[in-house]
Amino acid sequence: MKFALFTGCVAKGATRELMLSTTKAARGLGFDFVEMKSASCCGAGVVSEKSPLLADALNARSFSIAEKQGLDIVTICSTCQGTLKKTEAHLNEDAEYKKQVNDILREGGHQYNGKTRIKHFANILATDEGMARLKERVKRPLTGLKVAAFYGCYVLRPSDRSDFANPDNPTGMEDIFAALGATPVYYPSRIKCCGFPIVMMNKTASLDMSGNALLDAIDHGADVVATGCPLCHLSLDSYQPEIKILQETNNSIPVLHLPQLVALALGYSPDELGMDRHIVSTLKINEILHC
């Protein structure tokens, strides 16, 4: 199973532990992830605020890079995933538009043919093949660990571009947790927004969104939240001290990247996965798992 890894910017910046743990998780599962070093930022739905055509052209260029290698793309960020899928839909729904974009790419030696598929890491794990590998290679079952998924909007909505079977009530992440030996926690906020996109514009609202989701997870008995989106991670983890002040609560809960959770179960140590870099202490997890 070989994929072109679209790392996204945040995994190379503020959440380098995501990159670290993805590498470990992939190695542990026998996946070959080839980093796309010349791919540009997905635009995060922000570049398209300035110019939708530019955003699509940049992403089509990235697709072309994977196509040249004959590989499908794997993303490790819900926002990258949703944004790339949006470009893919724009290009495939309108042949004329696709031609316009390809004309822009031509001089750089790129062309998009619609061959490469774009999958989030979670959706690769959730395939039969992925689940089989997980079950086969788990060395440290996450027994007793109650894990609350936080999906990230972009992998669920719009639902017609989502790879999860029932985006209003998905089970893909929870199925992965169960395969790792953990206990999935279902709670309403798992499909909500973390508020990150407006943290610079409306910080209180943004923190309230994260805070409400965290409280919901805690109320439903979760030990840890796991997310497939590093932007959600920034909201839920890095801003948690401020959220606690805003919402006047003493509760806190650690937040893991999905690859960290997977790699833990594959036997890697918390320090190897950069868990010590989190803002909210993850020691509670170590205690539960005795690692």
């Binding site: 949703g82 972009y154 909505r157 719009p158 639902s159 209003d168 927004c193 996109p197 407006i198 609202a205």
Partner: peptide, 24 residues
């Protein structure tokens, strides 16, 4: 700019209005 990009409005809209796309 206070729209948080959650996409719920597009998902719930029963018509082709797709508010989030209009916001963009």
């Amino acid at each position: 700019w206070d729209c948080t990009h959650c996409g719920e409005c597009v998902e719930r809209c029963p018509k082709p209005t797709r508010p989030f796309d209009r916001i963009k």
